Computed example of a mutant assay.
Amino acid sequence: MRQVHYLPAVGSTHGVEVLSFAALRSMDIHRRRTQPQRPDFHVFALLGSGTGSHEADFHSYRLKEGSAVWIRPGMVHRWSDIDACDGPLVLFRPEALPGLTAPGTTTPACWQLDHQRLSLALHAVEHLSIELGAAARTPRLASPALLSHLLAALILRALPDTPAPTDATRTSSRHTEVFRTYRDSVEERFTDWHHVADHAEALGYDVRTLTRATRTATGTGAKAFLDQRILLEAKRLLAHTDSPVGSCARRLGFRDVGNFTTFFRRQTGMPPATWRATYGADGAGSSV
Rank of each mutant, 00 (worst) to 15 (best):
R25M: 14
D206T: 07
W111R: 13
D86A: 14
D282R: 14
D161R: 15
R255H: 10
E188S: 05
T171A: 15
V125K: 00
E55I: 11
A168I: 12
L46S: 02
G269N: 05
M27N: 15
C85Q: 02
V245A: 14
P271V: 05
C110A: 12
I155K: 01
L146C: 10
G66D: 08
S143D: 14
V10W: 05
M75G: 09
A239K: 00
Y6C: 07
D81W: 02
L118T: 09
H123P: 00
I155D: 00
A158H: 05
Y279V: 06
E201A: 10
A168W: 07
W193I: 05
A217L: 08
G219M: 08
P165F: 09
A9Y: 04
R33M: 13
G11Q: 01
Y182Q: 04
T241H: 00
E65S: 14
R250K: 15
L146H: 09
A84S: 08
G66Y: 06
H240I: 01
R189Y: 08
D28F: 10
R183D: 12
A168C: 10
S60R: 13
D184P: 05
D28K: 07
A234M: 03
R276S: 03
L252H: 15
R72M: 14
L120C: 06
Q267Y: 07
A9L: 09
G285A: 08
G87K: 02
S12M: 06
G283C: 05
Q112S: 13
P271G: 03
S119W: 13
H14G: 03
S172V: 10
A164H: 09
S286L: 06
Q37A: 15
G15I: 06
R215S: 15
F263E: 02
